[in-house]
């Protein structure tokens, strides 16, 4: 089991990098840009086999940041390619991320029904 402080450190550092990107680059970096950047970078690093060691070291510190979501997509895809071949390249990612995506959509919809934006 990953100790808590490792997850705290790993997650903290990944968020700190995001903050530096926001503050040091020219303006107009929105949360959308950050999220797209993290999921893509995570997925690429995962494909190169560089993300798994990070997950082994800091656990949720690497899986909870959105780069971990990219890692999840790629690992799902790679597992599916091993079992199903070409078809797996198209089905594996969504299969692995199904729970997260569905949760986000359903909870998003429910929250929209229950709550109004506040002042």
């Amino acid at each position: 089991m990953t100790p808590l402080y490792m997850a705290f450190l790993g997650g903290g550092v990944l968020c700190l990098i995001g903050q530096l990107i926001m503050d040091l680059t020219k303006a107009n970096i929105t949360p959308g840009h950050i999220l797209v950047g993290y999921i893509s970078t995570g997925a690429v690093l995962s494909g190169l086999g560089l993300y798994q060691p990070l997950v082994d070291a800091v656990g949720a510190g690497a899986t909870i940041p959105l780069s971990g979501f990219g890692h999840l997509l790629v690992q799902g895809t790679l597992r599916a390619v091993e079992s199903d071949g070409l078809l797996g390249a198209f089905s594996g990612g969504v299969e692995a991320a199904a729970a997260g995506i569905t949760c986000a959509i359903v909870f998003g919809y429910v929250a929209a029904v229950l709550f109004n934006p506040k002042d």
Partner: peptide, 19 residues
């Protein structure tokens, strides 16, 4: 404020950091 915010910037409840 909020009518302009949602049109020009972000949804009200999105956690964004002002400069």
């Amino acid at each position: 404020h909020y009518a302009a915010s949602r049109q020009y910037r972000f949804p009200t409840e999105q956690g964004t950091q002002p400069t």
